[in-house]
Design a protein around this nucleic acid. Sequence first.
DNA 1: GAAGGTATCGGCACTGAGTGTCAAAAGACA
DNA 2: TGTCTTTTGACACTCAGTGCCGATACCTTC
Lengths: 205, 205
Amino acid sequence: MRPGRPAVTSRGELELVALELFAERGFEATTVDDVAEAAGIGRRTFFRYFRSKNDVVWGDFDASLEQLRTGLAGVPATTPLIEGLRGAVLAFNALPEGAEPQHRVRMAMVLHTPALQAHSTLRYAGWRDVVAEHVAARTGARAGDFRPQLLAHQVLASCVAAYEQWLAHPGSSLPDLLEVAVGTLGGGGTAPDPSSRERTEVTAR
Amino acid sequence: MRPGRPAVTSRGELELVALELFAERGFEATTVDDVAEAAGIGRRTFFRYFRSKNDVVWGDFDASLEQLRTGLAGVPATTPLIEGLRGAVLAFNALPEGAEPQHRVRMAMVLHTPALQAHSTLRYAGWRDVVAEHVAARTGARAGDFRPQLLAHQVLASCVAAYEQWLAHPGSSLPDLLEVAVGTLGGGGTAPDPSSRERTEVTAR
DNA sequence: GAAGGTATCGGCACTGAGTGTCAAAAGACA
DNA sequence: TGTCTTTTGACACTCAGTGCCGATACCTTC
């Protein structure tokens, strides 16, 4: 075993305890002290497992991000860009059998609690970066260029809109909504890029 | 004059003092106490003028929102939807002569400070609602329906991407970037709406 | 089995945002 | 002068988040 005092709990376990409290009393009405006490740990320890109270709700989002990255990397080069994005988004948001109710609760909390809604923006940035990098790689641009960034923003916005609709309509299908949402994108993919004007003026003219 | 003790300062004046400090020391390094002291008011009074430290940066955003609403309402019914949105967005983000440098500083602060980046999401919701209401009115839908919400999300995302690009490239033109960004949208405007499936199954079939 | 190494734990004290309460201040008006 | 009205700001509080540091608990080594 590793040397040193063993951890008294795990990130996953702590997350479970916290989410239960959040669902019970509401996110804002639950203090970190409440969570720490319920988990039988010190308040200080909580912040060693999670950087903030907000972060609890996102689980191991970074791992999911890696999943998205590899998913995108596996898209055949012949697949049209939007089609590949749509497929990766669907795979990214696919749920294991029976996990839908929990996911609904969690996402409703994220999208309907102001503090979490605000905080989610910071998480979305990482998600967009993954998409932008993929778009850049497929189009011969750099990830920071206008087109990849624009498309990444648009794809994310489409997903969020799909999620909101999914949450608003209990009987709806998340995959269907995501597919339609992302499918509306892709116009103007061949138009010139005004952000690279200085560059193209030098190199291409 | 109105009865009662006169206000010791104004929202606009306080905003100026605060923005100056923010620009000088940075947003996060400036405490509300700093701002209050610099403005010669009590800390408690600050929170009567602004609901939060974050809100200072947004000025009177609600007034701008009303401007956007009336701008959209003035779009001729014959103008294609996306075209009208593009025009309204350009008008909404048009800057008075010479205001560009200040706007750059303010928006850079908003888009590059995590706390403000997160908080902006809450402001964006109001902006999206205005757009969604317009789209709904033009397409015979309700503002909460999938299409208006989706398009509102996408238009906003396009604007944010344009702003980020504008900030990253000092010589770039914000109107050009906005025009291109919003111009890429509008695909699939006639596709069926899966979120209203339950409804259409009853009424339209 | 004692000693030393090492990682986690958790208490304490602190900062900073935001809120409720309430008395004092400062003007208008009769 | 007295009353009414509104803003002000001091005080005390909650809660998130952080730095610090000794205590704790397990390991390996001798």
